[in-house]
């Protein structure tokens, strides 16, 4: 195993742990239930997930669009139908792959 890969993994892994655990340990955002900090934190979840949707779809927009449209449509349709994250995810992936194969 290369030393540089281990060092890189350790630095990034330790930082990840500090980011994930540190704020809980320090009690950030607690105490005052109301106020700006509370609203900021309540909006963080939707903001983060919306960002990740856009950031992960954006690189795919330049390539073949038909599979992308089919994949997104399948996720939306199966979500509306079954309200299940797993089924919607798998349906989206299947639709993307299937349309990619046919296109």
């Amino acid at each position: 195993m290369r030393g540089e890969v281990v060092v890189l993994a350790l630095i990034v892994g330790l930082a990840n742990y500090a980011f994930r655990y540190g704020p809980i340990r320090m009690g950030w955002g607690e105490g005052q239930a109301a106020g700006r900090m509370a609203r900021f934190l309540a909006a963080t979840g939707p903001a983060a997930i919306a960002t990740l949707v856009v950031a992960s779809v954006l690189p795919m927009v330049g390539a073949a669009r038909l599979p992308l449209v089919a994949g997104i449509a399948a996720v939306l349709a199966v979500w509306v139908w079954r309200r299940s994250v797993v089924l919607a995810t798998l349906a989206g992936s299947l639709a993307y792959g299937a349309v990619f194969a046919l296109a």
Binding site: V53, V57, G71, T89, L90, L94, Y96
Partner: peptide, 15 residues
């Protein structure tokens, strides 16, 4: 290609 769309699909379903 289908596997490559798994992550965006997962994020969208979570959203």
């Amino acid at each position: 290609a289908g596997l490559g769309f798994m992550l965006p699909a997962l994020f969208l379903a979570l959203l």
